[in-house]
């Protein structure tokens, strides 16, 4: 199951969607908006995405994870638009018969999501600067 949404992500709902009598483990990951990055203060984050492709890539992550690990259920959700401090921009919930699969799959999903899913965050810094985050790019002049 995958979902892009402009609304807040709800961890309880996410857990409920993967919890099952077939599973002995549920792993939940939330990525949340952090206030300080290397001492610099964030006011808020805005996320934008290439929605059609982001949905396809998220689906590909779910399919690949389900082939590589023995999973009972898998949910990947990403929020777009503004994600205020402390709130979740991404939710991954994975259940499996045994915990190792759920831990490993959740970690792989997040690592791969951060490389391949066409979603971008825009930092709104407390010092007034606004910038798109593009890992690996030389800083703009």
């Amino acid at each position: 199951m995958i979902r892009l949404t402009d609304a807040p992500l709800d961890s309880q709902t996410g857990i409920a969607q993967v919890q099952s009598t077939q599973a002995g483990a549920v792993v939940l990951f939330l990525g949340t908006t952090r206030e300080f990055t290397r001492g610099r203060q964030t006011l808020t984050l805005i996320y934008d995405g290439y929605r059609e492709m982001a949905e396809r890539e998220l689906q590909r992550l779910e399919t690949t994870a389900s082939e590589r690990w023995s999973l009972t259920a898998c949910l990947i959700e990403h929020r777009l638009g503004e994600v205020p401090l402390g709130e979740a921009s991404v939710l991954v919930a994975v259940s499996s018969p045994h915990r190792k699969d759920a831990f490993e799959a959740a970690q792989w999903i997040m690592d791969t999501l951060k490389q391949d899913v066409p979603i971008w965050k825009q930092e709104h810094w407390a010092d007034g600067q606004v910038e798109w985050v593009h890992p690996g790019l030389p800083p703009a002049e």
């Binding site: 990525g31 982001a54 997040m110 899913v117 066409p118 971008w120 985050v133 690996g136």
Partner: peptide
């Protein structure tokens, strides 16, 4: 066609 700069979701 779409131009995809390095992504920063998550």
């Amino acid at each position: 066609v779409a131009c995809i700069p390095p992504v920063s979701g998550g």
